[in-house]
């Protein structure tokens, strides 16, 4: 039910990111959102794609270390304070956020962020109570 994020272990070496993205491109996988967390030696590339199942299989077959993680795609007004409001709601409910990053595309006046949250269920309830829209996965993949 949650949006599936693909995470890939990459060494900090020239060409590694290119190798991942080229591999996905050749299979027709389209990247919707991405974030790269890194240290001096390695990084973790996190992707939201149109077809996570395909992306996972393709990468795994090429011996990349890859995993799938549930995340929330949260919609918010693209105005000052849009993100702050969402974070305040989650903060007030003591929902812990592991990481978040922005969506590449946007629709109309809405912005979107990807949230990785410890307690996904609690977050979903809180967001619903506060009338904050969480996008269903089908909608996210099709964007």
């Amino acid at each position: 039910m949650y949006v599936q994020q693909i995470s890939i272990f990459v060494e900090n070496k020239p060409g590694r990111l290119a190798a991942v993205t080229r591999l996905l491109a050749d299979e027709g996988v389209n990247i919707r959102a991405l974030s790269l967390a890194d240290t001096s030696d390695f990084g973790v590339l996190r992707l939201i794609v149109n077809d996570p199942e395909l992306a996972y299989t393709v990468l795994k077959d090429q011996d990349f270390i890859v995993s799938r993680t549930d995340v929330l795609a949260i919609e918010m007004p693209d105005v000052p304070g849009g993100l702050a409001h969402v974070l305040e709601v989650l903060g007030a409910a003591k929902v812990n956020i592991e990481y978040l990053y922005a969506f590449v595309g946007q629709s109309g006046h809405q912005a979107m962020n990807i949230f990785r949250i410890e307690d996904m269920e609690a977050a979903t309830v809180v967001l619903k109570e506060n009338k904050i829209k969480v996008l269903p996965k089908e909608e996210v993949y099709a964007l």
Partner: peptide, 15 residues
């Protein structure tokens, strides 16, 4: 080598 069973999506865990 990072193996599938040792991999975590979180940098903190890998560190």
């Amino acid at each position: 080598e990072v193996s599938a069973e040792m991999f975590s999506d979180e940098i903190r865990r890998l560190e």
